[in-house]
Nucleic acid binder design. Structure first.
Lengths: 151, 151
DNA sequence: CTCAATTACTTTGATAATCAAATTATATTT
DNA sequence: AAATATAATTTGATTATCAAAGTAATTGAG
């Protein structure tokens, strides 16, 4: 089998399964009241002190209306706090509660495990190459598809 | 930033971008009446003569009820045909129409192009490293999460 | 300085994808 | 023959999403 076919085959299978696995890991853990989407919002808000709604909406690529309802739910569940900015009262700032930060860390651990196993059996030289390769591919996509006004 | 963090960050972004790109390519192409989900059902039915509903539902990891409605829509749109099996009249067999096969091929081509353009700028050494990493990730999922009967 | 335009967010009304549970029809087993 | 199991569909609900309309606050042009 050619390299191309191998890569294609693995990628297809990975893509088909990765969200599913992530979701199921979530559902058997401590934070099973979170959907995968909600966890990704939490991941995006991150541990930084505060973020605006619009920055977060842009980053997770949903409309602000969608984010509003997502945040409503995360607040109900106790993962996020919301307050109006005093400098500009149109702006709403959100941040993780203590429980939100715990969820963040749990999700981070999942990713760490994944990356650790991705990198095992690689020499440090190969790690360097990998980073170059991934950066390269990443740039390629953001370049190639920027022109269409997507990014 | 450690290698692990860098790799994680890029992988997460790549994953998000690729899904996004796939969706947007679909929407500007010939088969824009298909959602990404529907395209993946078509992909799964494939070019083989016929499949049962239950096999397909299992393969795409949805309940049979979900698949029934998905197939209803694909039939309305002219991509799939459905008939009752004559050997066992409980069983429903589905297959792609000619238009369904065209959509299948178009999706296949999209994947090929994506992989080709991602790989064409890599040296053969770099390709090897990439394949090793993808294989590791794939094994991480199929090994570690097999026990739960997920994979 | 004021009011028109812009910005940040929320609300509303709609759709798609999904599930679990109930239902229907057919096959299999006892 | 009756009970059980299987394959698919239907039903009733939930979640995620968007576009467009609405609200409140700020900015900028005259």
């Amino acid at each position: 089998m050619s390299n191309h076919e191998t890569v294609n085959e693995i990628l297809v299978r990975l893509f088909a399964n990765i969200l599913d696995i992530e979701e199921k890991c979530l559902k058997i853990g401590e934070f099973s009241d979170l959907s995968i989407t909600e966890m990704h919002v939490i991941d995006n808000i991150g541990l930084t002190s505060e973020r605006t709604m619009s920055d977060t909406a842009k980053a997770v690529k949903v409309t602000s209306g969608t984010l509003t309802t997502a945040i409503d739910n995360l607040i109900k569940k106790g993962y996020v706090e919301r307050r109006r900015s005093s400098e500009d009262r149109r702006v709403v700032k959100i941040r993780l509660t203590e429980r939100g930060r715990e969820a963040y860390k749990s999700h981070e651990d999942f990713h760490k495990d994944l990356v650790t196993s991705a990198l095992e059996r690689l020499s440090s030289h190969e790690e360097e190459v990998l980073i170059k390769v991934l950066t390269n591919i990443d740039e390629f996509f953001s370049e190639k598809y920027k022109h269409a006004g997507w990014y």
